[in-house]
Structures are given as C-alpha cells and as structure tokens.
Computed example of a mutant assay.
Amino acid sequence: MNKPSLIRAHNLTRAVILLGLAIYIYHLDHSESLHYYIAPRMEFWVSLCPAPLACIALSLLIQAFLVRKRSICDCTTLPSSAVRNAAVYGIFTIPLLLGFLLPNQALGSAAALKKGMTLSRQYLTEQTLKEKFKSPDIYNEEFAELARLLYAQPVIQVNQEIFYETIGAIDLFKQEFEGKPIRLSGFVYSDPSLDRHNAFALGRFLVLCCTADAAPFGVYIKPEEPVNLPQDTWVEIEGHIHVTRNQGKEIASINAVQIREIKQPKTPYIYPSDNSVDKLRKELASIKR
C-alpha cells in the first residue's frame, strides 16, 4: 500500500511537469516558434495541447490535495526510491527545462556536421536515363513531370514549398539542366572537403515530422570568385546549374554568379510536398497574371 504523502508527492510532480509542458507549448505557439520543432501540418494539433494538458494537471492537483487514498487503482504500487523517481521524472523535466532555458533557433551547420550533409537526392533506382525527362521508374514520375515544368522557365526559382522536390528533379536530370539559370536560398555550410575546392554547400534541413528527424540537405555551390562567408549565414544564390564530381560521384552543382546575404526566413526548414507539380503550376499561373 502507498502512503498518502507518497501519492501526493507523485501527483504533485506529475501535475507540475504537465503544467510546465502546457505552458511551454503555449509559449512556442504564441511566439511563433513551433515551426522550429515540428512540421507545419502538425502545428495546429500541437497548439491545441495546452488545454487538455492543463486539465490533466488540475485533476492531479485535486487528487493530491483532496483525495486521501492509499492506492491509485487498487493495483499500483508507487516507487518510493528517491534515486529511481529522480531518474524517471528527470526524463521529462530535463528536456523541459532546457526548452525554457535555451533560445529557440533553427538547426544550422553544427547539426549538419553531426548528421552529415547530403548533396544529392537518394534515388529509388539507379537505371540510366535514356530519354529526356522520362521517368526511370514509377517512383520518379512526379520528378520527371516537375522537371519538364522547371525546364521551360527562363530562370528556375526554387520555391520554399517544393524546395526538396525541385532539387530532386534537377539532380535526377542534371545532364539535361546543364547551364540553366537558377535562384535559391539557404544557409552556408562548409567543411574541409569543400573548402579546398573553393566551394560550400547551400543547406536546408528537411523535416518530415519534427526536428528530431531533420536531415541536412544541401546544394554544392562553387562561386566564380573566392568568398569568405561565416557558417550559418543565410544567402540567396544566383547562378547556373553544372554537373560536377564530389567524392567520386556526379552531382548537380551551381556555379554562383551572385551571392547576396539575406535574413533567415521565418520558416527556415523545408518539408516534403504532397503534390509539387500542382503547387508549381499554381505558382506559375499566379506569376502570369
């Protein structure tokens, strides 16, 4: 059986953790910082969490101060070891404290260095392309259709909403896009393997669900003249697509004609698009108007 004081201590601890989590999510939502941690499609649902979390915390507080029971559900024995309780509740309290204490900021070069920057899209097949913009398999048909639309543009403007798909289409058909003008933005990432070639990667983080699964995704940039840009500087690149070799592999790169520093966008991450072709068509139609 559990002592009332032990039950009260556990209920109070859980209530404080849940209330802290509710306050933290509320703070992120109202400071427009949720996008640093989760994908846009999940923001609305996460923003609803503070209310139920606060209700559960209130229920635990009522149980702690008003209910006098020696068991919780007639089958549970609460641990009384201080070390064990500290270890269990520390799993929740330490990340919560770090969330309040550390600044909300986008992932950058430090995280990219740990995870490794990817400079080309990983294909589902390695079949050799035989015809221009013809999909090598059923999995890449959307990229092929997107490539046809992109190729018809005087300058390829890489849209934030379909960043990954656009770069994927270009990389899939890199030989056909040789010499095409392009404009895109991202943060500067460099390492010794790139520095010795007077190059850097223009990076973005691809987020599927939340920042825990964020993967650094970059484009190989070679400036016309040597540049000295600090890591994580946000820039807009204008240049031409070129096929180059990096670590023994052919990749799509950009010979940068112009590099301009910009402010970090409100939403710095990129996300998979459900239908990149339709989004590009709508964007092109709005431009023609």
Rank of each mutant, 00 (worst) to 15 (best):
Y26H: 12
Y26E: 11
D29P: 00
E32W: 08
S33T: 08
H35E: 13
Y36V: 01
Y37G: 02
Y37N: 02
Y37W: 04
I38C: 06
I38D: 03
A39F: 04
R41G: 05
R41Q: 15
M42H: 15
M42G: 04
V46Q: 00
S47I: 03
P50R: 12
A51D: 02
A51R: 07
A51S: 09
A54L: 13
A54V: 02
C55T: 12
I56M: 12
L58K: 03
L58D: 06
L58F: 15
L60D: 08
L60C: 05
I62G: 06
Q63T: 06
Q63F: 11
Q63A: 10
A64F: 05
F65Q: 01
L66P: 01
V67L: 13
V67M: 12
K69D: 01
K69C: 01
K69E: 03
S71A: 09
D74G: 09
C75N: 12
T76Q: 08
P79D: 05
S81C: 08
S81L: 03
S81Q: 05
V83E: 09
V83N: 11
R84M: 10
N85Q: 09
V88A: 04
T93N: 01
T93Q: 03
I94T: 05
I94M: 05
L97P: 02
L98Y: 09
G99T: 04
L101C: 06
L101P: 00
P103G: 07
N104P: 02
N104T: 04
Q105G: 09
Q105W: 06
Q105A: 12
Q105P: 00
A106Q: 10
G108D: 00
A110N: 11
A110T: 11
A112W: 08
L113V: 04
L113K: 14
K115P: 00
K115T: 01
T118E: 15
S120K: 12
S120D: 12
R121P: 06
R121I: 13
Q122C: 08
Y123E: 14
T125S: 15
E126F: 11
E126T: 10
Q127Y: 08
K130Y: 14
S135L: 05
S135Y: 00
P136A: 09
I138M: 13
I138L: 15
Y139V: 05
Y139W: 10
Y139R: 13
E142C: 07
F143H: 10
